[in-house]
Amino acid sequence: MGSTPPYQPFLLRCLHGLTGLFLIAAILTAFWTYNTYDGRWGTVPLPNFPAIEGIHGTFGLWTLLIFPVFVVYACRPGQRRLVQANSLAQLAQPGQPLWWYTLHRGANTLALFALAFALFSGKMMDETWLPQGELTHSWYYAHLVSWGVMVAAIALHLLLSVRVGGPPLLLSIVQWRYRPQDSPTRWPQQARDWWQRHWPRPWLGWWQSRSALIGLEVTLLGTILAAWLISMLKG
């Protein structure tokens, strides 16, 4: 393991950082919400703060808004960090460096699915349930389970990041420096260039690309879209 942090694209760091910041805040406030309104499986001595549910919902909403952008980036420019078509074959060599890298990609992918499930189940809940003591709704249980899976997925993601890249890999995602070609001032032009290359059918190249993680991207984005549509219809 080298001591010099590898370079991570600046856009990836921005999206990863925003998603991680909102997500961690949502997890912490989720536990506080459970601690305030439920506590059937144990509590900790936190202040009784009824407004915490609204704060949790705000952080959840911010995560929900940034998540689709992060998904698109992860499944396109960042797809080498996710599961690959030959991932199962690579797992046939346990203990080898490639085996650990494959597990790391699997953990990254699992974290995306876990977050999508957490966001979807949260949108299916009603904000009046907990204040009214309605703790037996199936979507509330699903949301509790989803956050437990989310915490486990984050822990696995961090542990495997340390295993494959050590502290330099963890530090590389929080550094502020960037190369000239990664400058935010170039993002609008890069977006226009991408659009012009694919116009008038911007999705054709993506759909035909053999390396694109089509199923993963469609599933994750479809889950978020369904969460918005269902919540609007039931509201």
Rank of each mutant, 00 (worst) to 15 (best):
L91S: 02
V83N: 04
F70T: 02
F59N: 14
L61R: 08
Y73R: 14
W62T: 04
L65I: 15
P68E: 10
Q93V: 03
W100I: 01
R76F: 01
A92C: 11
R81K: 06
L88R: 06
W100S: 03
P68F: 08
P97H: 14
P97C: 10
G60K: 03
C75W: 04
F70D: 13
R80G: 04
G60T: 02
P97G: 11
V72E: 07
Q79T: 09
I66L: 13
G95S: 14
F59M: 14
L64S: 12
F70I: 03
V71Y: 05
S87A: 11
S87I: 03
L64Q: 14
W100C: 01
F59L: 13
F59A: 14
Q93G: 01
V72W: 12
N86S: 10
Y73D: 11
L91V: 06
W99V: 04
F67L: 09
V69Q: 12
W62P: 06
V83S: 06
F67I: 04
F70K: 04
T102P: 03
S87C: 04
G95A: 08
Y101H: 12
T58H: 11
C75S: 11
Q84L: 15
A74W: 03
T58Y: 13
P68M: 08
V69D: 05
G60V: 00
P94N: 07
V72K: 01
P68R: 06
A89V: 02
Q90N: 13
Y101M: 09
L64T: 07
Q90C: 08
R81F: 09
L91P: 00
L91D: 05
T58C: 10
L65N: 09
C75P: 07
W99R: 00
T63K: 03
G95F: 05
G78P: 07
T102G: 03
I66W: 05
S87V: 02
L82C: 12
P68T: 00
V72Q: 10
S87P: 02
Y73E: 15
Y73I: 05
P94S: 07
G78Q: 11
R81L: 13
W99F: 11
A85W: 09
A89F: 00
G78A: 08
A85F: 10
Y73V: 02
R80Y: 11
V83K: 01
F59G: 12
A89K: 03
Q96Y: 05
F70E: 12
P77K: 06
Q93T: 10
V83H: 00
T102Y: 04
A92M: 14
V69H: 13
V83A: 01
L61H: 02
P94K: 07
P94H: 06
A92E: 15
V69M: 15
G78K: 10
V71E: 13
A74K: 07
T102V: 01
Q93Y: 04
L65T: 11
Q96F: 03
W99P: 00
N86I: 02
Q93C: 00
L98S: 08
G60W: 01
P97I: 12
N86T: 05
A92F: 07
N86V: 01
R76A: 10
Y101D: 15
A74N: 10
Q96P: 00
F59K: 13
W99L: 02
C75N: 07
L82F: 06
W99Q: 01
L64C: 09
N86Q: 07
Q96M: 06
P97A: 11
R81A: 09
A74L: 08
V72S: 06
G60D: 06
T63E: 05
R80E: 09
A89M: 00
Q90G: 10
W62H: 04
V69L: 15
P97N: 09
